[in-house]
Write a protein that binds this DNA or RNA. Structure first.
Lengths: 223, 223
DNA sequence: CCTGCAAAAACTGTTAACATTTATGGCGCT
DNA sequence: AGCGCCATAAATGTTAACAGTTTTTGCAGG
């Protein structure tokens, strides 16, 4: 109507809309992604919808084989472990690189913001924030995109469903602090191993949670 | 005509064809990817071509912004370094996981094949082969896909243009051997660090080659 | 009641035409 | 000649209809 080029292309807007549908559970995990249905819903043709679904497939958020109907992935406990193993490897490397190449001023800023979080007068207490800032500071566009665009979407869905563990908050802060200190010391190797340990601990907490719930966070049909 | 479902969908066939065009340099690095042009060339409509190009964008092999024409990436020296840094992180982790979970028999087979390569009666002396087999054995589908599907395509293009360094062959073999020995000993940590060192050395060789050539392997316009 | 097959429905794959945006080339102006 | 503007050309974005495959439905037979 009047919203001229918020994202400029229908395909991109449609991607965001479908992603939100999945995020909010309106299309459940394991549920089907129907092109015609979505096209009608958004008042667009199937072209942009197809493009959006294909992008979701690129993120491995939906599976899609030749003539079969696309469906949202299940995000089983196994899937999450795999994602976290991948994060451990990539974010570890990102942290090493950021420790070696990030400008001093940005590191200081990062440290200051972290200190503000501790004093409870933080502007945005996003847990992912520090991870994202390290990813953006690693001076490797390919790693940055993989973390900030590809894995970020998956983590959003996971976090939305299992409101982040409150018990880990304090410990996570301490671990973040150590990581930033290693980075300020320009000790890439230490920074990497601290980040890996940090994510590894998160993985363990994740596994415990999954055990508690008996079954993984499943909102779609059971396997 | 008669080739019934080799890949079943036109979009997929078109993807392979366009990829080969890029691999062979028929579409040069930095060159434009014209949808209508390719559609006519392959006797298909623009739909499958669009889908193929979008997949190439997902691999970060072509860049494509809203209304601009898509173009093949440049693969500058910087790009290659970034790819190798990413490989170091992911293949390192893959190697650790493979060392911990790969079945004994597969590891033995891997060792035997490597021994055959040493004795010069190898069936297929593919350098990438051992990396791929480790990726496939890491028991993490997400990592496997990232290495075998995403990064594999990029490495193929790089290798096609700079016929793999012969001087490294012998050393690479020795390093592969050590990695497999660590895996057979089920020492994931050692296997990971050996794999990382292996890729790191390859990166250095790569950088030296680039220095020798004065400018990176550029077939498109210079940056 | 269950099983297996055949027709119908639903869905994805593909195409060609239309709409909109960007790139190109020529013209006049300074 | 060099620079900016405007018409034209070319490329991408979008749509609606058609084609082929898969899933569902319903019925007949055991």
């Amino acid at each position: 109507m009047t919203d001229t080029q918020a994202h400029s292309t229908l395909a991109e807007q449609t991607f965001e809309k479908i992603f939100n549908l999945i995020l909010l559970g309106e299309i459940p995990l394991g549920g089907f992604v129907n092109e015609a249905n979505l096209a009608q819903r958004f008042n667009v043709s199937r072209g942009p919808v197809r493009e959006a679904v294909q992008r979701l497939q690129g993120l491995r958020l939906v599976t899609r084989e030749p003539h079969m109907r696309a469906r949202v992935v299940q995000l089983s406990g196994r899937d999450l472990v795999e994602i976290f193993q991948l994060r451990e490897a990539i974010e570890g490397m990102a942290c090493r690189l950021a420790a070696e190449t990030m400008p001093d001023e940005e590191l200081e800023e990062l440290e200051d913001d972290l200190a503000r979080v501790r004093r409870r007068d933080a502007p945005a207490p996003q847990v992912l924030d520090i991870h994202m800032r390290i990813a953006r500071g690693c001076n490797n566009k390919r790693i940055e995109r993989l973390l900030c665009e590809d894995l970020y979407h998956l983590l959003r869905i996971y976090r939305y469903r299992s409101g982040s563990k409150p018990g880990r908050r304090g410990k996570a802060y301490e671990e973040h602090w150590q990581i930033v200190r290693a980075m300020r010391a320009r000790d890439g190797e230490l920074a990497e191993s601290l980040m890996r340990a940090h994510i590894n601990r998160a993985t363990r907490t994740l596994l415990d949670t999954l055990d508690d719930l008996d079954e993984p966070l499943r909102l779609g049909a059971g396997a």
